[in-house]
């Protein structure tokens, strides 16, 4: 009789260990703490990488043989565009997880990713316009790449606006998850637009297979900047998530304790 209870408890315990990570991920104080300890080292690393990449790319690379110095906008334009696309997948997948498993923290991640993605998309469009004027001769052209990127900006802003439009946060999360999942189709369209259609925007210079069309002396700082922008996105995401967690859980004991601790400092 006793042994049977023991076995059942053991089984329960194993089950608990297996799922503890998943469950901890769903625990706001745990996530708040772990995000904080990641940020403590990731934030300085990100700032260093951004500084080194920007100084290397903007000051220590050769000018381009045709564009001269104006090509240097690539060190801001390409990283922000790449991470704007990748960030959309983060938002949409977090939305899917919150839709299927009703995981609150996934909802927090989705909501936190949207404004960061919108900012990155805006930077990509803005720097593209700045580069387009001296290179193409126009600030804006309704070609497939630029138009689909503008749609991405509207999708991100749409998620932000839709979330705020609901009083019921659960309904808001569900609606936003569906919007981001439907909008996911836009990402491969943006990526392949320059290959599928005749566009003003040139095809990708960095190639995953074969030699890149950008000289390696210009490529290395660009790759560093892309890595730095990924890290920057992660930092902003974690910071946004922490802020959102504290706001949502403002009535709970752990947040009160946190505020008290901060007040005591």
């Amino acid at each position: 009789m006793f042994s049977r209870i023991g076995a059942a408890q053991k089984g329960l315990y194993n089950h608990a260990v297996m799922w503890s990570f998943f469950h901890k991920l769903g625990s706001p104080p745990w996530l708040y703490d772990i995000a904080g300890s990641i940020l403590r080292w990731l934030l300085p690393v990100t700032i260093m990488a951004l500084l080194v990449g920007a100084v290397w790319g903007l000051l220590f690379t050769s000018p381009d043989f045709r564009q001269g110095n104006s090509y240097r906008i690539i060190y801001i334009h390409v990283p922000s565009a790449v991470v704007a696309l990748a960030g959309y997948y983060v938002m949409a997948i977090a939305g899917a997880v919150s839709l299927i498993w009703r995981m609150k923290m996934a909802d927090v991640a989705m909501k936190a990713a949207a404004p960061i993605g919108a900012a990155l998309t805006f930077i990509a469009l803005f720097t593209g316009a700045l580069w387009g004027k001296p290179t193409w001769g126009t600030w804006w052209e309704w070609d497939a790449r630029i138009t689909s990127m503008l749609i991405l900006l509207f999708l991100y802003l749409g998620v932000v606006a839709l979330y705020e439009a609901f009083d019921n946060k659960e309904a808001a999360g569900r609606a936003c998850a569906i919007l981001s999942l439907v909008g996911m189709v836009n990402i491969p369209i943006i990526y392949k637009s320059v290959d599928w259609w005749y566009s003003l925007h040139q095809p990708a210079s960095i190639k995953f297979s074969g030699e890149s069309a950008i000289d390696s002396s210009m490529l290395y700082p660009l790759l560093l900047m892309i890595g730095a922008f990924y890290a920057l996105f992660t930092c902003c995401l974690l910071m946004n998530m922490r802020a959102e967690l504290v706001q949502r859980e403002s009535r709970t004991a752990w947040v009160r304790k946190l505020v008290k601790q901060d007040g005591a400092h």
């Binding site: 000018p63 381009d64 045709r66 690539i74 193409w136 040139q202 095809p203 950008i214 000289d215 210009m218």
Partner: peptide, 9 residues
């Protein structure tokens, strides 16, 4: 229309 080639002079 600019192409995808970037290189030093």
């Amino acid at each position: 229309k600019h192409d995808e080639n970037y290189m030093p002079p």
